[in-house]
Amino acid sequence: MSSLVVPPLQKLQYGPLDFRRWTQGTASLVSGVGLAAMAALMIAGYFGGIVPLVTAGDAAGTAADISGSPALFLGGVACIFVVTLLDIVVAAAWYALFKPVNRRLSAVAAWIRVIFAGLFMLAAGHLVSAFSLLGQPDLALQAIRQFNSMWLISLGLFGIYLLLIGYLAVRSGFMARVFGILLAIAGLGYVADAVGTAFSLDFPVVFGSSGFVGEVAVIFWLLIKGRRLAA
């Protein structure tokens, strides 16, 4: 009677999508491409597809404009949903990039960005509701306002994320400290806008834009220098 032979366990094979095994160069390239794509999608989708069709205080006009250009509006909404998914990809990539600095803090930061992405996706759901309520213009405009307020408030969470990433960047040694400082400034701006919006929906959202230069500069660093980081 032959004995039962149990084959030895094989080591788990990690595929290219396993961000835990990404090198810092790969993480930089993925995050750089992801951030550039997010910027392009937000410009085309939100500023090109949503903003031109919405008139503050004019529910009937807004409903008429959206009804007249449904493909433009829904295309803008689709772009925003893709951005929320890319947020998760970038969160994973930046975890891989900064985990050599502080693995635990990088993980905390990554989860904060994932939670923000989920809230942003929920906020975008209000735009879908607005489209379905075009026959009731007041409710449709209210849904669009709910999207704006929920998005702006959730950006406070994104601001906290940038503060953590800014700290990690300053401590990293492989990224110039100025990038970490610029990211932290952007984070403070988002937090300020979120707090202001939470207390008043008419709050002028201006502080978050202060970090635009830093965020763009980091994208160029990721794509040019960061992708050359050694394993």
Score class of each variant (00 low, 15 high):
42 M>R: 02
63 A>N: 09
25 G>I: 01
74 L>W: 06
92 A>M: 14
38 M>S: 04
45 G>S: 02
99 K>Q: 15
71 A>K: 12
55 T>C: 00
97 L>S: 03
18 D>W: 05
45 G>I: 02
15 G>R: 12
63 A>D: 08
45 G>T: 01
49 G>H: 05
63 A>R: 09
35 L>P: 03
50 I>H: 01
33 V>Y: 15
82 V>C: 15
44 A>V: 11
81 F>E: 11
70 P>W: 10
67 S>Q: 15
94 W>K: 01
93 A>T: 09
19 F>S: 13
47 F>K: 01
102 N>M: 09
75 G>V: 00
93 A>C: 12
84 T>G: 13
79 C>W: 02
27 A>C: 11
17 L>A: 14
75 G>R: 07
60 A>Q: 15
64 A>E: 14
31 S>Y: 02
48 G>W: 07
83 V>Y: 08
77 V>Q: 01
38 M>E: 05
17 L>R: 12
62 T>R: 05
19 F>I: 05
18 D>A: 12
86 L>A: 08
30 V>R: 06
60 A>E: 15
47 F>Y: 15
50 I>K: 05
72 L>A: 12
47 F>P: 00
60 A>N: 07
57 G>F: 03
60 A>M: 10
99 K>Y: 04
95 Y>V: 04
29 L>I: 02
56 A>Q: 09
55 T>S: 10
79 C>F: 04
30 V>F: 01
101 V>G: 13
88 I>R: 06
54 V>D: 06
33 V>R: 08
84 T>E: 08
75 G>D: 08
73 F>M: 13
67 S>W: 04
52 P>K: 05
30 V>Y: 01
88 I>L: 13
38 M>R: 00
78 A>T: 13
41 L>D: 12
67 S>L: 10
40 A>H: 01
40 A>G: 09
91 A>D: 06
68 G>A: 09
74 L>I: 12
84 T>Y: 10
39 A>G: 07
45 G>W: 00
44 A>I: 06
63 A>S: 12
99 K>G: 04
51 V>L: 08
15 G>Q: 14
67 S>R: 14
38 M>T: 00
56 A>P: 00
90 V>T: 07
92 A>E: 11
80 I>T: 05
52 P>L: 11
51 V>M: 06
99 K>M: 12
93 A>K: 06
39 A>H: 02
53 L>A: 05
67 S>G: 14
82 V>W: 03
29 L>W: 00
100 P>V: 09
16 P>E: 15
73 F>T: 09
45 G>K: 01
23 T>A: 13
16 P>T: 13
22 W>C: 04
31 S>G: 14
33 V>F: 14
36 A>E: 02
86 L>C: 11
56 A>G: 04
99 K>P: 08
80 I>Y: 08
23 T>C: 09
36 A>T: 04
61 G>R: 07
74 L>K: 08
55 T>E: 10
50 I>P: 01
89 V>I: 15
54 V>C: 06
89 V>W: 00
63 A>K: 04
88 I>H: 03
26 T>C: 04
58 D>W: 06
15 G>M: 07
